[in-house]
Design a protein around this nucleic acid. Sequence first.
DNA 1: TTTGCATAAATTGTATACACTGCATACAAT
DNA 2: ATTGTATGCAGTGTATACAATTTATGCAAA
Lengths: 258, 258
Amino acid sequence: MVTRSRARRPARGIPDDSALRRIAARDIPGGGDARSLAEVACDEIRRAIREGRVATGAHLTELDLAAWLGMSRTPVREAMRRLQSEGLLLIQPFRGALVMRLDAGDMRQMFAVRELLEPAAAAACAANAGAADIAALRAILRQEAASLDDPAALFPLNRQFHDIILEVARNQFLSKAIAGVYSLIPLLGDSNLLNRRHAREAHLQHQQILAAIESGDAAAAEAVAREHVRHSLKTRLARIAMAGSGHSKQKTVKTGKK
Amino acid sequence: MVTRSRARRPARGIPDDSALRRIAARDIPGGGDARSLAEVACDEIRRAIREGRVATGAHLTELDLAAWLGMSRTPVREAMRRLQSEGLLLIQPFRGALVMRLDAGDMRQMFAVRELLEPAAAAACAANAGAADIAALRAILRQEAASLDDPAALFPLNRQFHDIILEVARNQFLSKAIAGVYSLIPLLGDSNLLNRRHAREAHLQHQQILAAIESGDAAAAEAVAREHVRHSLKTRLARIAMAGSGHSKQKTVKTGKK
DNA sequence: TTTGCATAAATTGTATACACTGCATACAAT
DNA sequence: ATTGTATGCAGTGTATACAATTTATGCAAA
């Protein structure tokens, strides 16, 4: 009997139905990381919010989510708690959770903090960057240049660009602070990168930031990064102004409640 | 039968033993907020870390904590997850949690971020502060002046001073970013305020910050706040240097495992 | 009709049972 | 002696049962 050391289990309990469900849920990406169900739940809910399948302001209950995700309340609960501490959900004791909603004022506050943190990251990056880091950033911008009309491709590239800068800045607290703000960007609605004019301008600014980093000019990197954040805010404010004046192209999203 | 609408319960299940335990655990402060056990657990663990009853680097298991706190694993689990997202714990799947430990490098990173955020908060506060805010800050500094040799009294006053500044700054993202950093300060060891010289200097800087706020001078508030953060780092570095050179007065802390 | 209260329904909070994982250790085969 | 495999144990991950709480509903009294 040369079964694997693990195959002895079924003798004890039920012929194991839950394991199948779990594995099925986990290995969707194929990588087979063996993520916990709570992580799966967390990612799925986040994704649903990001993609607008769950509207901001929607009311979520543990039971609904558990049914939707095909798991019990326990991991869902854990995921909801995590999303609350990220600021995506607002949990009211005994009364379920609301998907956080941010108004224009919140947006300004958020960008004020970004304007503080991101230039500092760019400056630190310029101070620390080695040849390999610069090569990585160059590679991303090369791909970015080729994807200016393909938002779906632009999203991860943009993300990677900023992630590398943070990594090279080598300050875990700065990274966490910025991550804390970034995670709430989905609540602001559609990405600026859907706007082609903005995508082009952002790409140019990325190139300027990289140029500053290449020459080790921290002050320049800081200045361009600040301008980058300001430009991003300006684009969003302009869109809000347009939407407010009746040109709303925003599609209404479903409530997410089954 | 004019019992309160709530008293009918015991008829159904066990004669209600758990409610007593819970109420006992909850209402320690007396305020009777009816906090959940998870919150109690969270606060207790945090406090144990802050007070050094649990050493940084200690290994914590759900079962140990549940036994210690007299509750089941579920709320403890929730608390541990929360503390992880605050950065106090490092949870390794299937292998328990470690109390995060920060070295001198981490400390520098942390203060670099504080030097970014806290001056901005002070500046925003100076821009927004009304008469009532200033009166509140004055009241705190008056108490602070009378408590310079009483660290136990100084801690909450110091906290309140900074909290009010954040509140008046009216930027929830700035507040959350700073809170995220503050929550890890206990991991750095004893507070600077135990040092009377430092306490006096910090108090003087508080007064300068308040003066700048009173006169609505954002730039001045920013500058003093930056100096305040720098001074705090300097004191900590000096203490580390002393400890490193063999003058360690640091008492070893217990492991926290029952 | 309206008000007050008690009950019912819905949902969260907590406890507990059980399967699974990771590691240590003992045993068997070479 | 050494290596590979099995086994036990400690601890986590998940499901589920139950208790507590909030909100809604119905019914009686004014």
